[in-house]
Design a protein around this nucleic acid. Structure first.
Length: 498
RNA sequence: GCUCUCAUCGUCUAGUGGUUAGGACACAUGGUUCUCAACCAUGUAACAGGAGUUCGACUCUCCUUGAGAGCACCA
């Protein structure tokens, strides 16, 4: 009995996005898992741009995909340079290679020219569906002689190149799904190229994966039915077969494949809304994978250590935005304040709140500091902190009232705060807090209010300073605003009551 | 329609023949608190159904049901 020779191949994986749109979160997660698998196994991660569909591909999408991947921290070992040197990692620059293999298949009669029109094909599909069989090409042109084909070609008849599917069962071992079997007889001869210069997906993938010596193909489950086609082509071309792993799909809340109609699907959109790359990475890793422990917070490098493809889930995972929000809020709170401030600046500028030179960095940091526990994403900072930047607040006077004490009592409360604050010399948060707490007790005693209920004094004050039902504490706001603005806001509030 | 795949709380999941079925998000309640967050504590909540196999099935087998993906001159 022959022992099968086991080749220990170096781990080489790839992610192969097509630049027909922004980087989809599903693609990003595939990229992440490939990256983790490569790093874990001391292998290489290759980025290949699949732009054979010239009509739909656009350079701007290639650039964006590269940018988003970099932003996420998913770095490739081989692939396009950042400065736009794509080299051999863009399919449109590999046309000679495909042409060579295409010719080989044609010469060996493993593929043939097909002259059927799209209308004919469509009619056939309809007819097959109606009969209850999987639509597939029956091979009308399969038996055309070489001479006939040549003749048609010379006449300039439109043609494509089809691959002869061998009628047999295709089995492969999937790292996440185990043994998978397909009946190739149901496939029909697939089109592998529009012409010698325009290869199509299933063919170019087989060629590229071979040429790039890809050892493991880790991709979304939506590709699983492409696998037998690619295996057949590898066999026809004499290529080694990579090991496959099909990842569960990322689902929308309605449990269908996450798509545009469900809202934001691109990494760029989440980035714009103010999600942090570490949060997105952590969140994506946990969609369809778990460490087998109860640990849930992972940095990219921790993920590299913990990742194992065996722990990848089989069932699709719903993209739960609430969980992303939670994780993002967690990372926001973890961020060093200087960094978080820098990250918030663009949002404040965009909203017209932050004008260069009007506010010091240290003051801005204080604003961010007192707001950050309420942030789920960076863009939240605008609504959370706009009252710090405005000169005039806009709110309903009834909001100033604490527990329906009435306008007059509210006014007295504000006047009391105004007096206390106007007398404070050392305008510093600790001191403000101390003085206001003392004042609150005194005020309650004077008015006969419940002694411990600080709301009589603090609520109207906080609303006067923020104009908000919910905000940071009055001490924090007063400290940031400074004495002059604080007193101004209090007197504005008093005027509002009158 | 055909092919393939999947199935534990609402969601992400742990669990590999014997568990009070565990954790996290979300939700609820309480604590803290002027408010909202954050934080801490507690709670609600799941093995799709039916047959087997077995002393014993969430766990193994089969069937049913349900769900998803694919079926392009897109990738």
């Amino acid at each position: 009995m022959k022992t099968k020779e086991i080749k220990i191949k170096k781990v080489r994986v790839r992610i192969a996005p097509s630049p027909t749109g922004a980087l989809h979160v599903g693609t990003a997660r595939s990229a992440l898992f490939n990256y983790l698998f490569a790093k874990k196994n001391k292998g290489s991660f290759v980025l290949r741009i699949e732009d054979t569909d010239i009509e739909r591909s656009d350079l701007k999408w290639t650039q964006e995909i590269i940018e988003e991947l970099k932003w996420l921290g998913i770095q490739w070992d081989e692939g396009p340079d950042i400065d736009g040197q794509y080299g051999p990692y863009k399919q449109s620059q590999r046309l000679d290679i495909y042409e060579k293999y295409l010719k080989q298949l044609l010469d060996e009669n493993k593929s043939y020219y097909c002259f059927c029109s799209e209308d004919e094909l469509e009619a056939m599909r309809q007819e097959q569906m109606a009969r209850g069989v999987t639509p597939h090409y029956k091979g009308k042109c399969a038996n055309l002689s070489k001479e006939e084909a040549e003749k048609f070609l010379k006449q300039g008849k439109l043609s494509v190149i089809r691959f002869r599917i061998t009628n047999k069962k295709i089995k492969f071992t999937d790292l996440v799904r185990g043994e998978v079997e397909f009946d190739a007889g149901l496939l029909g001869d697939i089109i592998i190229a529009k012409n010698s210069k325009t290869p199509l997906y299933n063919f170019s993938v087989a060629v590229d994966d071979h040429e790039m010596q890809i050892s493991h193909v880790i991709r979304g489950e939506d590709h699983i039915s492409n696998t037998p086609k690619q295996i057949l082509m590898q066999e026809a071309l004499g290529f080694d077969q990579p090991i496959y792993a099909h990842l569960p799909l990322i689902l929308a809340p309605d449990r269908t494949k996450l798509s545009k109609r469900h809202g934001a699907v691109s990494v760029a959109e989440y980035r714009e809304q103010g999600y942090l790359p570490e949060a997105i990475v952590n969140f994506m890793a946990l969609l369809g994978w778990n460490p087998g422990t109860e640990k849930e917070a992972f940095t990219l490098s921790q993920l590299v250590k913990e990742f194992s493809i065996e722990k990848v889930q089989k069932a699709g995972a719903v993209f739960n935005i609430q969980r992303l929000d939670f994780i993002n809020g967690f990372y926001i709170r973890e961020k060093a304040i200087e960094k978080l401030t820098e990250l918030c600046k663009p949002y404040l500028k965009e909203a017209g709140l932050l004008v260069a030179g009007q506010i010091s960095d240290s003051k801005l940091e204080k604003i961010i500091e007192v707001s950050k526990t309420r942030m789920k994403k960076l863009s939240d900072i605008v609504l959370l902190s706009d009252f710090f930047f405005k000169d005039k607040l806009n709110y309903d006077k009834d909001l100033l009232q604490w527990q329906k004490i009435g306008d007059e009592a509210t006014k007295e409360s504000l006047l009391f705060s105004e007096k206390i604050l106007s007398e404070i010399k050392e305008w510093e948060i600790k001191n403000l807090e101390k003085e206001l707490f003392l004042a609150s007790e005194k005020f309650n005693l004077e008015k006969g209010y419940q002694e411990k209920n600080k709301g009589y004094l603090l609520w109207p004050l906080r609303v006067a300073l923020s104009g908000r039902q919910a905000s940071a504490s009055p001490f924090e706001i007063a400290d940031i605003l400074g004495k002059e603005k604080t007193l101004k806001r209090i007197s504005d509030a008093i005027k509002l009551i009158i």
